[in-house]
C-alpha cells in the first residue's frame, strides 16, 4: 500500500487516531510519519472533520470549501469582521482557527455553538491571571490517593512498588512544603 499522505512511497507506518469517538487508521511512509507528532494537529487536518463541516452538519448550514467560497451567495457584512485581524466568522469556519485574541470578542455570540460541540462547556473554570489557584489542594489530594496506593501495595506485598510510592509521597510533600507553587 502506498502512503496516504504523499501517495508516493510505500506505507510502513500506521497511525491510529480517534476523532469524535471514531477510530481510524492511517498508513504513512516513514518520511510523512516523521512529520506526524502527538501534538501536531495540523498533520491530520485533511482527515479530521473540519470544524466548519461539524457546524454545518449541526445547523444544516452549507459547507464551504476554499474552491466554492467565491460562489457562496452572501458576502460577509463589514460588521462581521474582526477589527484587529479582519477575520470573518466564515473564515474561521474554513480555517478552523481564529485570527487573533480579539476574535473571541468579535464572535463571542457564535463561538459557544462551536465550543459546545468540541468542549466540555463554553465557560472557563480554571486558572486565571493574577488569581491564586487551588494547586496545593490538588497536591494534597494527590498525596492522599498515593497513600492509598501505598497501603494497597504493602498489603499485596509489592514492596518495590511500595518503595517507589513512598518516594513519590515524599516528593509531593516537598512540593507542598516549598509551597505556593503558584504564588506570584
Amino acid at each position: 500500500m502506498n502512503c496516504e499522505h504523499c501517495k508516493e512511497r510505500l506505507a510502513t507506518v500506521t497511525v491510529t487516531q480517534v476523532v469524535n469517538g471514531q477510530k481510524s487508521e492511517k498508513h504513512y511512509c516513514e518520511v510523512c510519519a516523521q512529520s506526524f507528532h502527538p501534538f501536531n494537529l495540523d498533520f491530520h487536518k485533511e482527515e479530521q472533520i473540519p470544524i466548519h463541516q461539524l457546524v454545518s452538519n449541526l445547523f444544516g448550514l452549507p459547507v464551504w470549501n476554499s474552491g466554492a467560497q467565491e460562489k457562496a451567495p452572501s458576502t460577509p457584512k463589514k460588521s462581521d469582521q474582526c477589527p484587529t485581524c479582519g477575520f470573518t466568522f466564515r473564515k474561521f469556519l474554513n480555517e478552523g482557527k481564529l485570527g487573533c485574541p480579539q476574535c473571541y470578542e468579535t464572535f463571542g455570540k457564535q463561538l459557544p455553538l462551536v465550543l459546545s460541540k468540541i468542549q466540555a462547556g463554553t465557560t472557563h473554570s480554571g486558572k486565571a491571571p493574577g488569581k491564586p489557584n487551588h494547586h496545593n489542594e490538588w497536591i494534597k489530594k494527590q498525596i492522599d490517593s498515593t497513600r492509598e496506593q501505598l497501603q494497597l501495595a504493602i498489603h499485596e506485598e509489592r514492596f518495590e512498588d511500595a518503595a517507589e510510592l513512598r518516594d513519590e509521597i515524599r516528593e509531593l510533600e516537598r512540593k507542598l512544603e516549598r509551597g505556593g507553587v503558584d504564588a506570584p
Partner: peptide, 25 residues
C-alpha cells in the same frame, strides 16, 4: 511569565488560543 507578558485572557473563554480546541486552560 504572566507578570512580564500581556497574556490574552477572557473571563468567559479563559486563555485565548488560535485553535478553539485549546482554548480555556
Amino acid at each position: 511569565l504572566e507578570e512580564h507578558l500581556p497574556y490574552a485572557f477572557n473571563e468567559s473563554f479563559g486563555y485565548l488560543t488560535s485553535c478553539p480546541t485549546n482554548v480555556g486552560t
